[in-house]
Design a protein around this nucleic acid. Sequence first.
DNA 1: CCATATTTGTAGCCTGTGCTACATTTTAGC
DNA 2: GCTAAAATGTAGCACAGGCTACAAATATGG
Lengths: 152, 152
Amino acid sequence: MNCPPTKAAKVRPPLQGNPRRTRQEHSQEIALDYVELIAELIATTGAARVTNLARRLGVTHVTVNRTIQRLQRGGLVNAQPYRSILLTEAGRKLSEESRRRHEIVVEFLKSLGVPDAVAHLDAEGMEHHVSRKTLSAFVKHLERCGRHQPPQ
Amino acid sequence: MNCPPTKAAKVRPPLQGNPRRTRQEHSQEIALDYVELIAELIATTGAARVTNLARRLGVTHVTVNRTIQRLQRGGLVNAQPYRSILLTEAGRKLSEESRRRHEIVVEFLKSLGVPDAVAHLDAEGMEHHVSRKTLSAFVKHLERCGRHQPPQ
DNA sequence: CCATATTTGTAGCCTGTGCTACATTTTAGC
DNA sequence: GCTAAAATGTAGCACAGGCTACAAATATGG
């Protein structure tokens, strides 16, 4: 494997700048949404089927299928044809972190007086962009303010 | 089945479910990042050049180029080869909304005790997922807690 | 137990974002 | 003014996420 002259892979510069770029983050967000939902479906209905996921995610079963394949390559799920999708240990762990984070964000928003439905919707988008530090600031705020104070 | 099997465009069902799906949102987020940055570069340096954008976004100039083409198709920017990129009226408007939103989120996070650097970083990811209602809850919180310098 | 409905899988297309490699145009220096 | 460097543009590849159309497996109801 001495580098064939063809390409040489050109050492890429550290790629500093805004780390949020790198499309990869987007697919990681999607992965989290999937494992979170798979865990939920298993918990509530006993199984995570492709069609269920598709309906819940608002995409076709084809999209789900391919994403599941990717997650399997990444070692997050364990899927066999025509069977319910299972989470690996890694997937389960990830789903729990994700769920915890999700719930904190929801609670936090509600504590600000954001209506339930909106809180859930926004949390879904925000949760993947909340750093550890910000998350703990949310927790601290929740502790300070006791619980959720209704709007008005 | 006299329906001509060829194409028929099949009326797509409403595609309810989680509206956050629909990959399109992702490219919309990127569009906002671009117009926001273009506005900033014009404001601070007088011009928005491809290379500048690329450096700031942490991607290659090629990626910037193609995205700019897409934004131009969408009527947000006005670009001529080898010239500085200009915002259209629509682009300017969008960039201002985006900036305002961004600043509110940053101020809000800071008011919770999140360190400046983290606040900026997280805001960049979060800002695209904060609904109007949540945003106004942020504003209300800022007002309640004093340190509000409303980003006009 | 078989016919049909539902679910799941596969093929193939499009778009968007990322890249490298290379071509072209501007800009700077001499 | 001309040459070299920098900036910009173009071609073409890879991958992810979206889709429709169609095929195959599984479930369900006579």
